[in-house]
Simulated assay, not measured.
Amino acid sequence: MTAYALAHLRKAPIHADVLTYLERIDATLAPFAGRFIVHGGAIDVLEGDWPGDVIVIEFPDLTQARSWYRSSAYQEIKPLRTRHLTGEVTLVDGVEPGHDSSQLAATIRRATER
């Protein structure tokens, strides 16, 4: 099942370390079949506040996503980002093809009615 690395990074002045991080991150993704699908594009906030940028990286599965994040290649460049940008980073499974929210609701309803 496809998995994603999601990041919500706060706006901050661009630092040379962050530029170096950006120059090097793609090479860390390649061995794990990771690819950016969102990388700081325009944000249209419809509810709440969202101070910062959104980054979404797609992986074939959660194992590949975890392996990328824990890899020595990524851990080597991570401080270039974390010293200058704050935010949250998570890994999450996607949904199976044909996902149906109403079926999910029915499953949850049955479980809570027991």
Score class of each variant (00 low, 15 high):
residue 89 V to F: 08
residue 9 L to I: 11
residue 47 E to H: 08
residue 36 F to N: 01
residue 51 P to R: 13
residue 34 G to S: 06
residue 16 A to G: 15
residue 90 T to G: 00
residue 39 H to P: 02
residue 63 T to W: 03
residue 63 T to P: 04
residue 97 P to V: 07
residue 69 Y to K: 08
residue 53 D to A: 15
residue 48 G to P: 14
residue 64 Q to C: 11
residue 73 A to D: 11
residue 95 V to S: 09
residue 6 L to H: 06
residue 114 R to G: 06
residue 1 M to R: 06
residue 76 E to K: 04
residue 10 R to I: 07
residue 108 I to G: 09
residue 90 T to Y: 00
residue 52 G to I: 02
residue 111 A to E: 03
residue 25 I to T: 11
residue 32 F to G: 00
residue 76 E to A: 14
residue 102 S to I: 03
residue 32 F to A: 01
residue 75 Q to P: 09
residue 25 I to P: 02
residue 40 G to S: 08
residue 83 R to E: 06
residue 101 S to K: 07
residue 95 V to L: 04
residue 33 A to D: 11
residue 96 E to T: 12
residue 47 E to R: 13
residue 107 T to M: 09
residue 15 H to S: 08
residue 106 A to I: 08
residue 74 Y to A: 00
residue 97 P to C: 08
residue 21 Y to G: 13
residue 15 H to G: 13
residue 92 V to F: 04
residue 4 Y to H: 12
residue 77 I to C: 11
residue 10 R to M: 14
residue 62 L to R: 10
residue 14 I to N: 04
residue 72 S to D: 14
residue 88 E to I: 13
residue 54 V to T: 15
residue 105 A to H: 07
residue 21 Y to T: 09
residue 55 I to V: 15
residue 58 E to G: 13
residue 21 Y to K: 08
residue 41 G to I: 11
residue 91 L to Y: 03
residue 43 I to D: 03
residue 67 S to H: 11
residue 42 A to P: 14
residue 54 V to P: 08
residue 114 R to M: 03
residue 99 H to S: 09
residue 98 G to C: 09
residue 60 P to A: 11
residue 92 V to C: 08
residue 105 A to Y: 04
residue 3 A to V: 09
residue 43 I to H: 06
residue 58 E to A: 15
residue 85 L to R: 10
residue 52 G to R: 00
residue 106 A to E: 04
residue 29 L to G: 10
residue 63 T to R: 06
residue 72 S to M: 07
residue 60 P to V: 12
residue 71 S to G: 15
residue 2 T to Y: 05
residue 71 S to N: 11
residue 114 R to L: 07
residue 9 L to S: 04
residue 78 K to Y: 07
residue 93 D to S: 12
residue 70 R to F: 12
residue 51 P to E: 10
residue 11 K to Q: 11
residue 56 V to L: 12
residue 7 A to G: 02
residue 5 A to R: 12
residue 9 L to M: 12
residue 109 R to N: 03
residue 42 A to S: 10
residue 97 P to E: 05
residue 70 R to P: 15
residue 3 A to K: 08
residue 47 E to Q: 09
residue 32 F to V: 04
residue 10 R to H: 14
residue 113 E to F: 04
residue 60 P to N: 13
residue 70 R to K: 10
residue 74 Y to G: 00
residue 8 H to R: 09
residue 25 I to L: 01
residue 44 D to E: 07
residue 11 K to S: 14
residue 88 E to S: 07
residue 102 S to E: 05
residue 21 Y to R: 08
residue 51 P to I: 09
residue 87 G to V: 12
residue 20 T to N: 02
residue 71 S to K: 10
residue 90 T to V: 06
residue 21 Y to D: 10
residue 5 A to Y: 05
residue 93 D to N: 13
residue 57 I to C: 13
residue 81 R to C: 10
residue 36 F to R: 00
residue 16 A to Q: 12
residue 81 R to N: 08
residue 17 D to W: 02
residue 51 P to K: 12
residue 40 G to W: 01
residue 79 P to N: 00
residue 58 E to H: 13
residue 70 R to Q: 10
residue 62 L to F: 13
residue 107 T to H: 03
residue 105 A to V: 06
residue 21 Y to F: 04
residue 37 I to P: 15
residue 80 L to A: 07
residue 17 D to P: 07
residue 105 A to S: 13
residue 78 K to P: 05
residue 47 E to I: 15
residue 71 S to W: 09
residue 57 I to D: 05
residue 53 D to R: 14
